[in-house]
């Protein structure tokens, strides 16, 4: 554990709390992509299969349980509690185009060709691109509620902080995890456009609007 990793995980937690808070206070899931949220459930469930056979630490265990349960809870809120506020006609990105190639890549580029390892690799690749339906939805509407942008910023910062974490671990432990590093850099890169608008406009108190 190092400070980058800890802050990254805390940013990840914060993003989930912001999202749940947004839904409860506005009693709505407007502007949130159900598909992206469903992809996160798939990501966590396929990544944390090791909950059944490997113990890393209490921290690790609690966080994994939290990520699986909170992502399922978010789907429940979107599908049942606030269903009328979700507009599926805006959420049209085809998730097959993400899951298919990620699975194929996981079969080719992995550390060991066994079930749990391929599922772990698949989850890393899928997480990198899971934000696409959400970004695509914002592209279509051209704007986002401020609280939605805070959610996305926290989520992007989480993976961005993992990058110095890997650099730190390389120097202190000699650990290198090329799959996580490449996917993590891609994942962070996808946020660059968003970050630009977020830091130059939203934090200045302006509305998140994409140029027409």
């Amino acid at each position: 554990m190092n400070i980058f990793r800890l802050l990254g995980d805390l940013a990840h937690l914060a993003s989930i709390f912001i999202l749940v808070h947004k839904m409860h206070t506005t009693r709505s899931c407007r502007g949130i992509s159900f598909k992206t949220q469903a992809l996160y459930v798939v990501v966590f469930v396929t990544r944390y299969i090791d909950l059944f056979y490997s113990w890393i630490s209490l921290y690790n265990f609690v966080m994994k349980i939290f990520f699986i349960s909170s992502s399922c809870y978010i789907l429940y809120l979107m599908k049942y509690r606030f269903r009328p506020t979700h507009d599926p006609t805006l959420d049209t990105f085809k998730v097959e185009y993400l899951a298919g190639p990620c699975f194929a890549l996981a079969l080719i580029f992995n550390y060991h060709f066994d079930f749990t390892e391929i599922m772990w690799t698949f989850s890393i690749y899928l997480e990198a691109v899971a934000i696409f339906p959400q970004l695509f939805m914002m592209q279509r509407t051209g704007e986002a509620e401020t609280i939605t942008t805070h959610y996305l910023a926290a989520l992007g910062i989480y993976r961005a902080l993992y990058i110095p974490n890997w650099i730190y671990r390389y120097y202190t432990e000699g650990t290198v995890d090329p799959i996580a590093i490449v996917a993590g850099i891609v994942q962070t890169g996808l946020y660059l456009d968003f970050f630009y608008v977020y830091f130059t406009k939203v934090l200045q108190g302006q509305k998140f609007e994409l140029p027409a």
């Binding site: 890393i56 630490s57 966080m63 994994k64 060991h112 772990w120 995890d177 996580a180």
Partner: peptide, 10 residues
């Protein structure tokens, strides 16, 4: 841990 020794990140 090396990647081969299990994944300790989230």
């Amino acid at each position: 841990a090396k990647p081969s020794e299990g994944h300790d990140e989230l």
